[in-house]
Design a protein around this nucleic acid. Structure first.
Lengths: 88, 88
DNA sequence: CATGTCCGTGATACTAATACCGGTATAAGA
DNA sequence: TCTTATACCGGTATTAGTATCACGGACATG
């Protein structure tokens, strides 16, 4: 095993992560946010739908900047959910 | 061209990013930090040396947590360097 | 009603991230 | 000197992120 396949937990985290981003996007369109972040709309869609559960750091950084989000808060939110999931 | 190859700017940013992480690591060993972050030492080394210029978000998040860094500060530092590079 | 546009989606192509292995260099210690 | 530990480096294998293409649905417009 040379590259650890994504665990179900990681995928679940990715879904929560995408849900957070989608919620933060609000009523803005995907393309608008994608353009603002400098990524393709398809990539944004994959991230939001959780099909890209572990996106690149700078992709998220650009996205967070476009959405006015804090990276620390994003990570914290996912970490908390992770802990909750582990605790549950 | 379906996936944009990393631009020299992105690679340079990756090197700066790695340098930041290395500086934050201080005198601690790679393996210690890697274990604390839950990643392999090789991956940490690649990130620090800039050979993995666009690491995954959660990889960086775990690393930042292990190093006691702020993701926003990290992103800001790289963004500033980016702007400076663009302005220069 | 037909058509064009926009948004979201699925499939596909290709590069990059991650992990493991072996080898090398350097410094510390026995 | 020899061993050990740390870090660096190259190669390899596999999975995953990202971008383009093509399609379907919704909506406005002619």
């Amino acid at each position: 095993m040379v590259r650890t396949p994504l665990t179900p937990e990681e995928r679940a985290r990715g879904e929560r992560f995408g849900a957070l981003l989608r919620a933060a996007r609000g009523d803005r369109s995907m393309v608008e946010v994608a353009v603002a972040a400098g990524i393709s709309a398809e990539t944004l869609r994959k991230i939001e739908t959780g099909r890209a559960p572990t996106p690149a750091f700078f992709t998220i950084a650009a996205l967070a900047a476009a959405l006015g989000l804090s990276l620390d808060e994003l990570a914290s939110a996912c970490a908390e959910a992770e802990v909750s999931a582990s605790a549950a």
